[in-house]
Design a protein around this nucleic acid. Structure first.
Lengths: 222, 222, 222, 222
DNA sequence: GATGAATGAGCGTTCATTCAT
DNA sequence: GATGAATGAACGCTCATTCAT
């Protein structure tokens, strides 16, 4: 976590550093990211960086556990399931929020996606990721259990199983669909994260509804 | 691809090298994997390694395009969709084959999964990955289109969308479910790949059927 | 070209590095020169060297395109052909300047000569060499053409041909003659570059006049 | 020098090895030449090569001290100055022989030229080169001294000096002129040694006479 | 005599981190 | 508090030479 020296920085400088770090960590995987490029882009000295953060991992950790969640919250609000709301309406809203965030903040989206999939993360960072996943899973399972009680879901649905697939869908699954719509795959999204910005709003709604329906009704004929 | 020198090696030595390389490339992402660790584990000199393979990328490529497919084929046979077979039966077989391979060959499974998700792969290797994905996607879309014609799937199903989610399910989605059944997540599977070996065959069948049903009928109440 | 880090170094340290690099690159051809030896001799760490220069080629390039010309200029001044001066006087001055520089700065001379003849230089460096040669050739041909117009040279002289031999004479040809005067050949000069320092000024003048006369009058009897 | 095993080889195999070695050593400088490429091209095993020659240096030495002189002799005969012949006629013949050998055997020419200029030669090989040079110098000085006695040369000619420039002219000087005639420089000759083969015989004669005349009459106006 | 697998020292280069100023 | 020079371990890769078969 950042040292107090970082908090004392002028907002402008703090922002420069944050932006440079996001640009770097979202462009290349953690292991290939270098502090050199970050300090160059931020216009601060390398020594200073170590006055602000304990090191590369600390900077990355702060970005993912503090900065990104705060920005996400600011952009799309908390994902608290409105009590009593229909499961499928909540999920559709969640899908929509995710897609809109991806269009509005491609770099942050890419940063988060990288983190979720990165294989070379240090043990301490892996614990953070586990926390993220557990929270997302808990939210989903609570939602699904409520839905089950209200009869909106099959009574014999395996909630743990469904939450796994939904967690994927809410993250890279949806991004993959988004990329497909513009003729790319997820690798392509990493290279050109703003390629999906060109999608019309109705395309996005169409996509979100289609995905929701796949999970609701399945692919089989009735 | 390996040089003839490698083919001429004693099977015992070849196996030592292969096992060391799989262990390394399945433990850390490509960019962090080192030949030093591989040759140490295999008990050969660094120079020798270059008599067998043109370099690190060549070794990795061989593992992924030759060795892994061969072992997979040996373990589960070809995935040729029996013509005219029911879509859902074919998918169930495919799920089952994937899970069984994961239980039988956890290291190879981990290797393949890492490859599918690795962020710091070289351009040439990325092309191979694109090929894999395109082939998998084509297989799935063909399968789904047939199913649609035979009335086994909803007539208005978005085949491209469904194939995206199924591709995930056939790979890490299913592995994630497998891990969940033993109280882990995917990260946990990477750390203890053989933890899933304890699963009983009926548990596996139950899982496969559950997943198939989720995709067939959805999670919504009828 | 050196990074600013190198410019900011203490002159003493900069000189140590420069001297070590000159010693190395003038002792062995580019391909055999090693940074290990240079940093050892200079007493800096290998990592530091990469703070000063982008790499081996960069260091070499700086030596040849910046440092050596600067030192040469400092030692013998620019070779601007005084307009209207007699061809033979200009050439004699050029010969003299070359020989005096060789006596004053044997290591640098050896460095430049190696560069002119090195067979295993990289493409980028080869382009620099082509530039050097083209400039030298242009200077000589302009000089000879002027001389022809003023009637100082034979009217039927093949200027291109003559410039080729003069270019050689101005470089290693003259050094070879210098070495001969102290009983060595060019190889010997490479091994003991300061052996020619013992030559008296009148010996040098005598040599320069002899060479000029050979090119002016030829070796044949009149 | 080759071991007896090399002499016992079938002429065909010996020739394959020789040709491969010439191709390699004439294509890249000694330090960049590799035995791997030579044995590959020759179709022999690496171990065998060490049964024929003591190592890389030994093979190179044999090529330069035995094979190349023999082939040169076969191609252009001995350079014994026909007693009593005019100096300038002899020199012209020598120039012509050199140019014709370059056209007939570009690889061998390039090999020899590389050797004369290579900077990274081992001490033992340097001794061989000194021998070559001393022999050439002795031949030239004898020729010039005779010419002086017969009054074909200026009485006050510095024979040692003139022999230095003539030695250069007979070797790379002439090749440089040859390359100029086809729009290249010596570097270009190394890349495309047969580029000069296109020169017409009268061009070659013209060149040889021009060079001879430059050394005989000089470049100055009378 | 022929083979070709094995070796290991050495190369240029990278980069997170330290620390004197 | 800010700086940026210094470091050194580690990396992928090359190749002449050795030596068991």
């Amino acid at each position: 976590m950042p040292k107090t020296t970082f908090q004392n920085l002028s907002p402008e400088k703090r922002e420069r550093i944050t932006a440079a770090a996001i640009a770097e960590f979202s462009s290349v995987p953690y292991g290939k990211a270098t502090l050199d490029r970050i300090v160059d882009a931020a216009g601060v000295s390398k020594g200073s960086m170590y006055q602000y953060f304990a090191g590369k991992a600390d900077l990355y950790r702060w970005l993912l556990t503090e900065h990104l969640p705060a920005r996400k919250m600011a952009a799309i609000g908390a994902l608290a399931p409105a009590p009593g709301a229909n499961v499928w309406a909540v999920l559709e809203q969640a899908f929509l929020a995710g897609v809109r965030f991806a269009a509005a903040e491609p770099s942050l989206t890419r940063l988060g996606l990288r983190f979720r999939r990165d294989h070379e993360i240090e043990p301490e960072l892996a614990a953070i990721r586990r926390g993220h996943r557990a929270a997302s899973d808990a939210w989903l399972q609570a939602l699904l259990n409520e839905g089950k009680e209200r009869g909106e879901l099959r009574g014999d649905l395996d909630v743990s199983m469904a939450s796994g697939f939904l967690a994927h869908a809410l993250g890279e699954g949806m991004l993959d669909q988004l990329a497909r719509r513009v003729g790319l795959d997820l690798d392509g999204f990493f290279e050109r994260p703003d390629a999906t910005a060109s999608l019309a709003d109705e395309d996005i709604l169409d996509l979100v509804r289609g995905v929701t329906r796949l999970f609701r009704e399945g692919a089989g004929a009735r």
